[in-house]
Design a protein around this nucleic acid. Structure first.
Lengths: 201, 201, 201, 201
DNA sequence: AATGAATGAGAGTTCATTCAT
DNA sequence: AATGAATGAACTCTCATTCAT
C-alpha cells in the first residue's frame, strides 16, 4: 500500500518536475526555446526519460496550457466573495487585466499563441476557455437581473466586456500600447472606470 | 549620376522582390514556412544574396510588419471622405474589424506575432503603428470637439475604442469566439452598435 | 520434483508466449516493427522480463527462424504418403513453391533475411535447415535407386532441385518476376514440368 | 567555360565521394550501418552538406542500387565476344554466379534486400532489372534459333535459367548451402555442367 | 553583385539494453 | 520472477548564417 502510494507519488512528482522545468524554460526563453532536450537537461535526466512520463511534446505543451488556465481560473474565483454582482464584475475585470499583465507569458499561451497541438488537446483547451466564458456570462445574468446594466442581453454583455479586457490586456502585453510599467494600473483603472461609467446604470 | 540612380533603383526593387516573396510565402504557408531558403528560391536568387539587401531574417519580418500596417492604414484612409466625425469613427471601426477578419494573417503580423522590435531602434524606422494610433486619437479630438462623445479625454477615448475593436477582432481571429463564418458581420454590428450607444452622446 | 517441473513448464510457456507474440508482430507489421517493446506490450509483461528468458533480441529472431522452418518442414512431411519417389519429389517441389509464395514472410525469414547465425553456435541449436536438406537428399537417393533420374549424384541432384525451386520462389516473392497473382500456379507448373522433363528419365 | 566545367566536375566528384563512402560503409558494416552521419564523417563533411548533393537518404540508396546494377551489367557484357550462343549462355551463367558470390553485398542490394525506397527509384530499378532479363531472353532466342536447346519457349528458357543461377547464388550468399570458400567454383561448375547437360541438345 | 559551398546547432523521437529493487 | 526507471546512442533532416570567390 505504502509502496504503491510512494511510487504513484514519485511518478506524479516526476511529471511535475518535467512540467515545472518546461514552464520555467518557456518563461525564461519563450516558446521556441522550449525543447525536450532543454527540459531534460534542466531536470538532469536524459531526453528519453521524458518519454516515460509523456507521450510526446504536444502532451507537455497541453499541460502547460492547462496549468496556465488553472492559475487564471483560480484568480477568477477569488472574486466570488463579493456580494454585489456589478462590483464582482468590476473586480473580476481588474483582476483579469492585472493577471494578464503580470503573467504575460501565460496569457500568451492561453489566448494568443498558436502552438502546435493535436486535436484532442486543442478541443480540451477550448473547453476550458468556454467554461471560463460561461462563468462571465452567468455573472452578466446576475447583473442584468439586479438591473445594473444598460445592456440587457447577457451574451452580448459578456462579449462586450471580454472584448474590452482582452483588448487592453493583449495590447499591453504585445507592447502595442507602450506605457511605463508603473503606469499600467492607472491606465487599467481609467479604462475600467470609463467602461463601467458607460455600461452601468 | 544616372548610374547611381539606377543602382539605387535596382537595390530598391530587389528589396521589394524579397519582401513580396516573403509576404506571399507567409500568406500561403504561414510564419513557420517563411524561411530564407524558400524566399530565395521563389525569387530565383541564392539565399546568400538576400544578405546583401537585408541584415538578417528579423529585418525582413519587420518589414513585412510594416507592409501589413501600410495596407491597413490605406484602408483606414478611405473613411476620410465621411464628413461627420462620429460616423467616420463608426465606419472606421467597422472597417477595422472587417479588415482584420478578412486579413487574419496580416492582422496577426500587426498585433499578435512577436515582431523583432529591436530592429526598430537599430534601423531607426518609425513605427507606423504609432501613426495609426495618432490618427485615431485625432479623430477622437474631432468627435469630442463636435461634442459627440461622453468621454472627454481623446487619448482615453482612442484607447477605449481600440481595446474594443482589437479585442473582438483578435478573439474572432484566434477563434476564441467561435461563431459560424456568416454570423461574423452580425456579431460585429451588434458589438459596434452597442458600443456606440454607450459611448456616443 | 513437481515444483521443478512446473517451473520448467512455466518457463517454456513464457518463452513460447514471447515467440508467438514476436511472430505475430513480424507477420502483421514486418521485421522493422519487431521491437522488444512491442513484444513485451503484447504479452503484457515488461521489456526487462523478456531478458529473463532470452539472452537478447537476436536469440528471439533465431527462434522465429526455427519456427518458420518447423512449419515448412511439417508441410514437407505431408508428401510422404506418396509411394512413387519421383512423384513424391514433384509434389514436394510444388508444395515448396506454393508454400513459399503463400507464406512470403516466413520464407523471407528462412532464406532471405539476415538471421543472426552466431546464435546457432552459441546455443548449440541444430540447424533445421540442414535436416530439411538432408531429407531432400534422401529422397534423391530413392529416386536414383529407382533409376528415375538422369543425375546420379544425390547431393548434386538435391542442390539442382533446390536451386530451381528456391530460385523461382524467391524471385516471385521479391517481385523480380512480376506476373499477375493468378498466373503464379501456371508459371510454377510450367517451370516444374520443364524441370522434370529435363531431369527425369 | 573552363570554370563551369570545373565546377561541374567538383559537383560530380562530391556526389561520387558521397556514394563511394556510402558504398564502403554498406560493404563494411551492412545496410543498417549505412547512416548519413557515418557517411558524412567518412568524407569529413558535415551531415548537412550531403543534403546539398542529394535530396535525401533514399536518393543515395537508389544510386547504390544503380551502381551495383551497372557493375553487374558490365560484367554481363564481357561475354558478348563469344560467338556461339550456347557457349555465351554458359559463360554468362558462370559469370553471374561468380560475380554474385564475389560481390555478395551488391547482389543482396540488387535482388534480395528490401530497401526503403520511394516509388520512382523502385520503378527505375525494376527497369534495369527488366533490361537485364530481356537480354537473357534474347540470348535464349538465339540459342533456340541455333537449335541448341531442348526448351523451345525463350521466355520459359530464360526463367528456368535465371531460377537456377539466382537460386544457387542466393543460397550460397545466404550461407544456406555451406561449403568451404574454395569449393565454390567446383560446385558452381558441377551445377552448371549438369544444367547444360540437361538443357542443351 | 552574386553565389556555391559549407556548417554548427539543433529538432523530436526510438531502440535495445541494464540494474537496483 | 518481475519490473520500473533510466539511458546512451542513434536516427533523418532543417535552418539561418558565413565567407571565399
Amino acid at each position: 500500500m505504502g509502496i504503491a502510494e510512494r511510487k504513484e507519488r514519485d511518478k506524479l512528482s516526476m511529471r511535475q518536475a518535467v512540467l515545472d522545468a518546461a514552464m520555467e524554460l518557456y518563461h525564461e526563453k519563450g516558446i521556441e526555446a522550449l525543447t525536450l532536450r532543454a527540459v531534460a537537461e534542466r531536470i538532469e535526466f536524459s531526453p528519453a526519460t521524458i518519454y516515460l512520463y509523456f507521450k510526446d511534446k504536444d502532451e507537455i505543451v497541453f499541460h502547460l496550457y492547462s496549468m496556465a488556465f488553472a492559475k487564471f481560473y483560480q484568480k477568477q474565483l477569488e472574486v466570488n466573495s463579493i456580494a454585489d454582482p456589478l462590483e464582482r464584475l468590476r473586480q473580476g475585470c481588474r483582476d483579469y487585466i492585472e493577471w494578464g499583465v503580470q503573467n504575460p507569458k501565460l496569457y500568451d499561451l492561453m489566448f494568443i499563441l498558436e502552438v502546435p497541438m493535436n486535436v484532442i488537446a486543442e478541443e480540451n483547451c477550448q473547453d476550458i476557455g468556454k467554461t471560463s466564458f460561461a462563468e462571465l456570462q452567468n455573472l452578466m445574468v446576475e447583473c442584468i437581473a439586479a438591473d445594473k446594466l444598460k445592456i440587457k442581453d447577457p451574451e452580448l454583455a459578456a462579449i462586450m466586456c471580454w472584448n474590452m479586457i482582452h483588448g487592453i490586456t493583449s495590447l499591453l502585453i504585445k507592447k502595442r500600447i507602450v506605457i511605463p510599467h508603473e503606469a499600467v494600473p492607472q491606465m487599467t483603472n481609467a479604462v475600467l472606470d470609463t467602461f463601467f461609467v458607460l455600461v452601468a446604470k
